[in-house]
């Protein structure tokens, strides 16, 4: 369900995961650091990420749909449209109601939305061209502590199992209430949901005991478990350097053109 695109083969998919991860972080950092309203620089950043998407041969439409996930959060920046200072644009709805939109506020709002969207595209590109286990082993090589990597890797292995259990609980609830979500009071509905969550937690606690017993039986003594990643070649080093330089150049351009 979750890993549908990661099996494809393309230049981006085959690229060393550490290169991809570091580049994505540098890209997002540079996008975040570029000042408000530097539109030409934004266009350059967008070109970089679009080039990545085209090279990855992922469906642009699907990435676009996935990138809408943080759209509701734009609401958080919405008020600055009206609270930022002069000069204002005036929109008249009728004689009495006039809306004043601050021009600097508008600039900031659009900048935040674009920067956030480009960062999101980069993160989606990384996660949909990389196996999660590979990503974890790359993060381990980059210094993420062993226990965290092991916990995340084990969580990943049991995630789809737990989601399935959650789904079957939800299906059981829906079939017992004839598919109607509005039966009885809110308190009752919430209580049932809470008991489902409690059920899930108990099952997971018991399962973790069994998993631990099985791991111990196979000789587990607390050493972390994760995959090892590909080695870092000279070619990877050059690709990463070029990518990072490109981002920094665009950032410098953004700051100078401000």
């Amino acid at each position: 369900m979750i890993e549908i695109y990661q099996h494809q083969k393309s230049y981006i998919h085959l690229l060393n995961t550490r290169v991809k991860t570091l580049f994505t972080l540098v890209f997002i950092l540079c996008v975040s650091l570029s000042p408000t309203g530097t539109w030409p620089a934004y266009l350059l950043f967008l070109t970089v990420i679009l080039a990545g998407i085209i090279l990855s041969r992922l469906s642009f439409k699907l990435l676009l749909i996935r990138s809408l996930i943080s759209l509701p959060f734009v609401l958080a920046a919405f008020p600055i449209l009206f609270t930022a200072p002069e000069p204002h644009w005036q929109l008249s709805i009728n004689e009495k109601i006039k809306i004043l939109i601050s021009q600097p506020g508008f600039e900031r709002f659009i900048s935040i939305a674009i920067k956030s969207w480009m960062s999101l595209l980069a993160a989606i590109l990384l996660s949909s061209s990389t196996h999660f286990e590979e990503l974890l082993s790359a993060l381990r090589k980059l210094g993420l502590p062993k226990p965290i990597v092991s916990i995340l890797s084990l969580m990943w292995r049991y995630l789809s199992l737990m989601i399935d259990e959650g789904r079957s609980l939800a299906r059981a609830r829906d079939s017992r209430s004839a598919g109607k979500s509005n039966v009885r009071t809110i308190g009752w509905r919430a209580g049932v949901t809470g008991k489902m969550v409690g059920n899930l937690l108990l099952r997971s606690l018991e399962r973790s005991e069994r998993v631990y017993a099985a791991m111990a039986a196979r000789g587990y003594t607390g050493d972390p478990l994760y995959r090892t990643s590909k080695s870092f070649t000279k070619g990877d080093y050059w690709i990463l350097t070029c990518g990072v330089m490109l981002c920094l150049l665009i950032l410098a351009f953004a700051i100078l053109s401000q």
């Binding site: 916990i151 084990l154 969580m155 990943w156 199992l161 959650g166 937690l201 973790s208 631990y212 972390p224």
Partner: peptide, 19 residues
């Protein structure tokens, strides 16, 4: 590690259950 990992998966799944 097994306890944290599996419980985290359960909390993730629990966040999907809503009323």
């Amino acid at each position: 590690i097994p306890l944290m990992g599996i419980l985290a998966a359960a909390i993730f799944a629990g966040q999907m259950l809503n009323f």
